[in-house]
Protein backbone atom coordinates (compact mmCIF):
# COMPACT_ATOMS: atom_id res chain seq x y z
CA UNK A 1 0.00 0.00 0.00
CA UNK A 2 1.36 3.49 -0.86
CA UNK A 3 1.67 5.99 1.99
CA UNK A 4 -0.85 8.34 0.44
CA UNK A 5 -3.03 8.81 -2.61
CA UNK A 6 -5.02 11.59 -4.24
CA UNK A 7 -8.42 11.25 -5.86
CA UNK A 8 -11.67 13.07 -6.49
CA UNK A 9 -14.10 12.17 -3.66
CA UNK A 10 -17.71 11.00 -3.83
CA UNK A 11 -19.89 12.46 -1.06
CA UNK A 12 -23.03 10.79 0.36
CA UNK A 13 -25.36 11.48 3.30
CA UNK A 14 -26.35 9.61 6.48
CA UNK A 15 -27.65 6.02 6.60
CA UNK A 16 -26.27 4.76 3.32
CA UNK A 17 -27.45 1.17 3.67
CA UNK A 18 -26.01 -1.82 1.87
CA UNK A 19 -28.98 -1.89 -0.53
CA UNK A 20 -27.82 1.47 -1.87
CA UNK A 21 -24.21 0.28 -2.08
CA UNK A 22 -25.19 -2.92 -3.94
CA UNK A 23 -28.92 -3.53 -4.46
CA UNK A 24 -30.31 -6.97 -3.62
CA UNK A 25 -30.99 -7.86 -7.26
CA UNK A 26 -27.21 -8.13 -7.87
CA UNK A 27 -26.61 -10.53 -4.97
CA UNK A 28 -27.02 -13.38 -7.42
CA UNK A 29 -23.35 -12.73 -8.21
CA UNK A 30 -20.91 -14.81 -6.12
CA UNK A 31 -17.95 -12.67 -4.97
CA UNK A 32 -15.41 -15.54 -4.95
CA UNK A 33 -15.91 -16.17 -8.69
CA UNK A 34 -13.44 -13.77 -10.37
CA UNK A 35 -15.68 -12.62 -13.23
CA UNK A 36 -18.60 -12.07 -10.86
CA UNK A 37 -16.36 -10.15 -8.42
CA UNK A 38 -15.53 -7.70 -11.20
CA UNK A 39 -19.19 -7.49 -12.24
CA UNK A 40 -20.18 -6.58 -8.66
CA UNK A 41 -17.82 -3.60 -8.92
CA UNK A 42 -19.64 -2.28 -11.98
CA UNK A 43 -22.84 -1.96 -9.91
CA UNK A 44 -21.25 -0.20 -6.91
CA UNK A 45 -23.49 2.52 -5.42
CA UNK A 46 -26.06 2.01 -8.19
CA UNK A 47 -28.79 1.96 -5.52
CA UNK A 48 -28.39 5.67 -4.76
CA UNK A 49 -31.59 7.42 -5.94
CA UNK A 50 -30.93 9.52 -9.07
CA UNK A 51 -32.87 12.53 -7.79
CA UNK A 52 -30.58 12.87 -4.75
CA UNK A 53 -27.41 11.79 -6.56
CA UNK A 54 -27.50 13.14 -10.13
CA UNK A 55 -23.73 12.62 -10.44
CA UNK A 56 -23.31 8.85 -10.69
CA UNK A 57 -20.57 6.95 -8.90
CA UNK A 58 -19.82 4.62 -11.81
CA UNK A 59 -19.59 5.91 -15.37
CA UNK A 60 -21.74 3.85 -17.79
CA UNK A 61 -19.87 0.74 -18.88
CA UNK A 62 -16.93 1.38 -16.54
CA UNK A 63 -15.41 -1.34 -14.35
CA UNK A 64 -13.46 1.15 -12.21
CA UNK A 65 -14.63 4.34 -10.53
CA UNK A 66 -12.76 7.62 -10.68
CA UNK A 67 -13.80 8.26 -7.05
CA UNK A 68 -11.43 6.11 -5.02
CA UNK A 69 -12.52 7.73 -1.76
CA UNK A 70 -16.09 7.97 -0.43
CA UNK A 71 -17.10 10.53 2.17
CA UNK A 72 -20.14 9.43 4.20
CA UNK A 73 -22.18 10.61 7.17
CA UNK A 74 -23.61 8.68 10.10
CA UNK A 75 -24.26 4.94 10.14
CA UNK A 76 -22.58 4.17 6.79
CA UNK A 77 -23.22 0.59 5.63
CA UNK A 78 -26.29 -0.09 7.75
CA UNK A 79 -28.84 -2.78 6.91
CA UNK A 80 -28.07 -6.15 5.39
CA UNK A 81 -24.92 -8.10 6.34
CA UNK A 82 -24.03 -8.72 2.69
CA UNK A 83 -20.27 -8.83 2.24
CA UNK A 84 -21.00 -7.96 -1.38
CA UNK A 85 -21.10 -4.31 -0.21
CA UNK A 86 -17.44 -3.73 0.74
CA UNK A 87 -16.49 -6.13 -2.05
CA UNK A 88 -18.35 -4.11 -4.72
CA UNK A 89 -16.57 -0.97 -3.51
CA UNK A 90 -13.18 -2.67 -3.42
CA UNK A 91 -13.72 -4.29 -6.81
CA UNK A 92 -14.31 -0.94 -8.52
CA UNK A 93 -11.21 0.59 -6.98
CA UNK A 94 -12.36 2.34 -3.78
CA UNK A 95 -9.48 2.43 -1.29
CA UNK A 96 -11.19 3.97 1.73
CA UNK A 97 -14.40 5.37 3.13
CA UNK A 98 -14.37 8.24 5.59
CA UNK A 99 -17.59 8.53 7.59
CA UNK A 100 -18.88 9.91 10.89
CA UNK A 101 -19.80 6.38 11.99
CA UNK A 102 -20.38 2.88 10.63
CA UNK A 103 -22.87 0.12 11.05
CA UNK A 104 -21.17 -2.77 12.84
CA UNK A 105 -21.35 -5.55 10.24
CA UNK A 106 -20.21 -3.38 7.32
CA UNK A 107 -17.21 -2.20 9.34
CA UNK A 108 -16.33 -5.76 10.24
CA UNK A 109 -16.74 -6.95 6.65
CA UNK A 110 -14.33 -4.23 5.46
CA UNK A 111 -11.75 -5.59 7.87
CA UNK A 112 -12.42 -9.29 7.28
CA UNK A 113 -12.17 -8.93 3.50
CA UNK A 114 -9.38 -6.32 3.59
CA UNK A 115 -11.15 -4.61 0.70
CA UNK A 116 -10.98 -1.05 2.04
CA UNK A 117 -10.12 1.16 5.01
CA UNK A 118 -13.19 2.37 7.00
CA UNK A 119 -11.90 5.58 8.59
CA UNK A 120 -13.93 7.62 11.07
CA UNK A 121 -13.78 11.38 11.11
CA UNK A 122 -14.31 13.32 14.35
CA UNK A 123 -15.61 16.23 12.26
CA UNK A 124 -18.54 15.65 9.88
CA UNK A 125 -17.30 16.25 6.33
CA UNK A 126 -20.42 15.72 4.25
CA UNK A 127 -21.35 19.42 4.39
CA UNK A 128 -17.78 20.63 3.90
CA UNK A 129 -16.66 18.56 0.92
CA UNK A 130 -18.56 18.00 -2.31
CA UNK A 131 -18.44 15.29 -4.92
CA UNK A 132 -15.55 15.82 -7.32
CA UNK A 133 -13.31 17.73 -4.87
CA UNK A 134 -9.73 16.53 -5.04
CA UNK A 135 -8.46 15.09 -1.75
CA UNK A 136 -5.37 13.36 -0.43
CA UNK A 137 -5.53 10.57 2.13
CA UNK A 138 -2.30 10.01 4.04
CA UNK A 139 -2.18 6.49 5.50
CA UNK A 140 0.96 7.26 7.52
CA UNK A 141 -0.50 10.21 9.39
CA UNK A 142 -4.20 9.20 9.14
CA UNK A 143 -5.06 12.59 7.65
CA UNK A 144 -7.30 13.83 4.88
CA UNK A 145 -6.27 16.97 3.01
CA UNK A 146 -8.97 18.70 1.01
CA UNK A 147 -9.58 22.31 -0.03
CA UNK A 148 -6.35 23.46 1.62
CA UNK A 149 -7.32 21.95 5.02
CA UNK A 150 -5.92 18.89 6.72
CA UNK A 151 -8.24 16.86 8.95
CA UNK A 152 -6.94 14.37 11.49
CA UNK A 153 -8.92 11.13 11.21
CA UNK A 154 -9.33 8.57 14.00
CA UNK A 155 -6.53 6.02 13.70
CA UNK A 156 -7.79 2.55 12.75
CA UNK A 157 -5.96 0.90 15.64
CA UNK A 158 -5.97 -2.89 15.83
CA UNK A 159 -7.90 -3.37 12.61
CA UNK A 160 -5.29 -1.55 10.54
CA UNK A 161 -2.77 -4.43 10.30
CA UNK A 162 -5.60 -6.82 9.36
CA UNK A 163 -6.56 -4.68 6.36
CA UNK A 164 -2.89 -4.07 5.51
CA UNK A 165 -2.41 -7.84 5.36
CA UNK A 166 -5.35 -8.20 2.95
CA UNK A 167 -8.01 -9.42 5.37
CA UNK A 168 -8.69 -11.85 8.18
CA UNK A 169 -7.17 -15.00 6.67
CA UNK A 170 -3.94 -13.39 5.50
CA UNK A 171 -3.53 -11.71 8.85
CA UNK A 172 -4.29 -14.89 10.80
CA UNK A 173 -1.68 -16.79 8.77
CA UNK A 174 0.92 -14.04 9.04
CA UNK A 175 0.50 -13.85 12.79
CA UNK A 176 0.49 -17.64 13.22
CA UNK A 177 -3.13 -17.92 14.38
CA UNK A 178 -3.89 -20.46 11.67
CA UNK A 179 -1.43 -22.60 9.71
CA UNK A 180 0.11 -21.15 6.55
CA UNK A 181 -1.54 -22.13 3.26
CA UNK A 182 -0.47 -25.56 2.06
Amino acid sequence: MPDSFSTPVFVVGDNIDTDQIIPAEYLTLVPTIASEYEKLGTYAMIGLPEDKYPVRFMAPGATKTKYRLIIGGRNFGCGSSREHAPIALGACGVKAVIADSYARIFFRNCVATGELYPYETPEPLAGVVKTGDEATLDFEKDTLTVGGRTIQLRPLGEVRPVIDAGGLFNYARKSGMIPAAS
Partner: peptide, 14 residues
Protein backbone atom coordinates in the same frame (compact mmCIF):
# COMPACT_ATOMS: atom_id res chain seq x y z
CA UNK B 1 -25.89 -12.29 15.25
CA UNK B 2 -25.25 -11.72 11.56
CA UNK B 3 -21.80 -12.00 9.95
CA UNK B 4 -20.24 -11.72 6.50
CA UNK B 5 -19.00 -14.47 4.17
CA UNK B 6 -15.36 -14.22 5.22
CA UNK B 7 -16.16 -14.66 8.92
CA UNK B 8 -18.52 -17.51 8.04
CA UNK B 9 -15.84 -19.16 5.89
CA UNK B 10 -13.51 -18.95 8.88
CA UNK B 11 -16.14 -20.66 11.06
CA UNK B 12 -16.65 -23.38 8.42
CA UNK B 13 -12.99 -24.26 8.90
CA UNK B 14 -12.46 -23.65 12.62
Amino acid sequence: TGIGNTDAGFIFGT
